[in-house]
């Protein structure tokens, strides 16, 4: 992910995408990984168009192959960026992420808040859909009118959603309180992460590759297409 942020060269981005494809195949999530990247295609097209329009609107910049190429580069980089995120969340559960953060001595209260936020996202999406269904059934048309009217029409969607979120958070607070959340400063865990040899290998490889990426970008400065 960090390497993707440093480089814009097509060769490096292609290498990153190929490596990610191999990693996703090894992790047996290639199908879902490729579907996620494909699902983001409207966003990728939007980034390309936004970049292109911005570039040609700058003073002294005209419509040229160079501006198309640079906009394509930005959109291509986004693919690598989204693919990195996708592979991370497809192979790591919120609980595993929480365990890793706990191991890094992040206070459990914050870890719990973080895990809950991730875990509740699909539930909220489901609730949002049922609210939209309810309001559309009352004749609410979200697609009609100018931007201001459309924004106003989102009030009947946002108010019930906010109420649901608040109610759910109160219920969650009560549920964890009755389970003695925060009763002791140092809690124990059912499962704890332990570094094994393959973890050390993966970590070392990542550090070496990332160090090389920094070296070639800022110190040795090689020119890539």
């Amino acid at each position: 992910m960090a390497t993707t942020m440093m480089y814009i060269e097509v060769t490096v981005i292609t290498i990153i995408i190929v490596v990610e494809a191999v990693l996703s195949a090894v992790a047996r999530v290639f199908g879902r990984w490729s579907r996620t990247v494909y699902g983001a295609s409207p966003l990728i097209v939007f980034v390309f168009l936004a970049n292109f329009l911005f570039r040609i609107s700058l003073p002294g910049h005209a419509l040229s192959l160079q501006s198309i190429y640079e906009s394509l580069q930005q959109a291509y980089r986004l693919i690598a960026f989204l693919a990195s995120f996708s592979i991370f969340f497809l192979t790591t559960t919120p609980e595993e992420l929480g365990m890793a953060l706990t191991k890094m001595r992040v206070p459990y209260m914050y870890v719990f808040a973080f895990i809950s936020a991730i875990r509740f996202t699909p539930i909220l999406a489901e609730e949002l859909q049922s609210i939209i269904d309810s309001q559309k059934s009352r004749g609410l048309e979200l697609e009609k009118g100018n931007i201001l009217t459309r924004l106003k029409r989102f009030i009947p969607i946002l108010v019930p959603l906010m109420v649901n979120v608040l109610r759910r958070s109160y219920e969650l607070a009560e549920a964890i309180e009755v389970k003695c959340f925060g009763a002791k400063k140092n809690r124990t865990y059912l499962r704890e992460l332990k570094m094994k040899s393959k973890d050390w290998i993966a970590l070392s490889l990542s550090i070496i590759l990332f160090s090389l990426a920094i070296y070639f970008k800022y110190i040795y400065k090689i020119n890539l297409p």
């Binding site: 609210i131 309810s134 108010v159 019930p160 109420v163």
Partner: peptide, 10 residues
Amino acid sequence: VFQNAEDMFF
């Protein structure tokens, strides 16, 4: 009339 009445209220 959906199951969760509160989804309507605002």
